[in-house]
């Protein structure tokens, strides 16, 4: 693998919350190392509390890790890198007091895009996610799925090589997720961006990702990386194929023990049943 082909590098990242020795001290992430290639879609999956989101926030520069570090396009991450990384958050992170197009323009204003380019790029991004007609709606007027599309449009308009997504469809119902997943696969295969996304859904991970990093229970480490060898854009028919189901079952086996561990850990800590 050529050095230039590496988009995001994660080196020995560990992170703990709270003070060591203190009762609330939590080791969220343990010595994680990984290279993410340019144009790759990487899914992070694992039991809740395993540090997937922590890792995403470390890459995004929102959280500085206890030890180790990440670099994006060869630059070490020391804080938000608005020109390299765009974020799509799990919750609705649109500004409710701005219309959809104002939200997108505001992102570009923050990033420092010249004013003259705002309108054109915002319209193009809205068109890409199929929301052109809703430019002047407020987020409160849109459905959850449309809001996440709008958030995606905002991220796309920033024109960054890397996009991080923290359970972007987590709050949506399964049918909406499925359709959005198809659209996303189609859209992202065109843009050639490096995408890292956190998900809880096995199907979503298999359907969207080029590689899936499976995490262990807390403190999280990468247990295994599963490649999904299927070209983008992926069609709905992929979802019913044997290959899809095989990979999904493999993921399920890997995750099942880990999830069991976290559940036992929790019921143990509250004194059992």
């Amino acid at each position: 693998m050529q050095k230039q082909d590496i988009s995001v590098q994660i080196q020995n990242v560990s992170h703990s919350f709270g003070v060591e020795g203190h009762a609330k001290h939590v080791r969220a992430l343990l010595d994680t190392t990984m290279d993410i290639h340019r144009g790759e879609l990487l899914a992070l999956i694992g039991p809740s509390g395993c540090g997937k989101s922590t890792l995403l926030n470390v890459i995004g520069g929102i959280l500085s890790p206890t030890t180790g570090g990440a670099s994006v396009n060869g630059k070490p991450v020391n804080g938000p890198m608005p020109h390299d990384i765009a974020y799509v958050f799990q919750e609705n992170a649109l500004f409710p007091w701005n219309t959809i197009i104002e939200n997108i323009r505001l992102g570009m204003l923050f990033q420092g895009v010249p004013k003259a380019d705002h309108e054109g790029r915002a319209r193009a991004a809205l068109k890409a996610v199929g929301l052109s007609e809703f430019a002047d709606h407020y987020p409160g007027q849109l459905s959850g799925g449309m809001r996440q599309r709008a958030a995606l449009a905002r991220a796309l308009s920033l024109d960054t090589p890397v996009v991080l997504m923290d359970e972007p469809f987590g709050a949506l119902d399964e049918q909406t997720r499925m359709v959005l997943g198809e659209d996303l696969s189609e859209l992202l295969s065109r843009t050639g961006k490096t995408i890292i996304f956190v998900t809880h859904s096995l199907g979503e991970a298999v359907f969207l990702a080029d590689r899936i990093a499976v995490f262990t229970a807390r403190p999280g480490r990468i247990k295994e990386v599963i490649p999904v060898d299927e070209p983008h854009p992926r069609k709905a028919s992929f979802m019913t194929s044997d290959k899809f189901n095989g990979l999904r079952n493999r993921l399920f086996e890997l995750l099942h023990d880990e999830i069991r561990k976290t559940v036992n850990l929790r019921s143990g800590s509250t004194g059992g049943f």
């Binding site: 929102i62 974020y87 992170a93 500004f95 923050f110 990033q111 420092g112």
Partner: peptide, 14 residues
Amino acid sequence: LKPVLLTSARSMGA
């Protein structure tokens, strides 16, 4: 104020 709005603004370079 929802913290995610602040995080989101900062991540975009605000």
